[in-house]
Design a protein around this nucleic acid. Sequence first.
DNA 1: TAGTATCA
DNA 2: ATGA
Length: 215
Amino acid sequence: MSGQLFPQDPTPRRLALGPQACVLGGFALPHLGGVMPALQAVLDAAPLRHLVTPGGFTMSVAMSNCGALGWTSDRRGYRYTRDDPDSGRPWPDMPAAFERLATAAAAEAGFDGFVPDACLINRYAPGARLSLHQDRDERDFDAPIVSVSLGLPATFLFGGLARADKAARVPLAHGDVVVWGGVDRLRHHGVLPLKDGEHPQLGAQRINFTFRKAG
DNA sequence: TAGTATCA
DNA sequence: ATGA
């Protein structure tokens, strides 16, 4: 039962996290046939890597990107770049299957016309985590954030505008999508350390896509 | 402060 | 496991 927010409901499942924030249970599942091969191609061209924070710590989550802009971090700070700093080449194009999934999920959550130009790919091995933070490196905060969960279940933290606000704990399963925007766009969020396990399709890992309009 | 460790 |  761990991570099963929506046990036996066959229809579109939604859980409100705020006025303009929600979880869409299992929303990504019908799209995965097109998404998984594309993911493989993206990671072949831009391998996952562990970024370093401005404070000098290596992140436990391994990251890559596709789309016109990619999120990166190093000692100089956080930013979006056109090129992969590791290869010097542009980030791989965002696969059409990725963009369709993101746009459909946003529309389902009430954000019509979402066109992401950035997809951050996060890979969580057991133990990997992401501490509470805000997404504030984008040019404007008009567009929502669309976050897709694949593989092992995880506990998502959804806090408030202030970092000290108590964060809700939301179990996320394979295929769940979280969308937040509008008045909820700058809410803090994170992921608890991933528990060990084995997923039938993805093995001992969790993959997360975070779609944004960064530029 | 997109981090970690330690200690209640 | 959870929070300071």
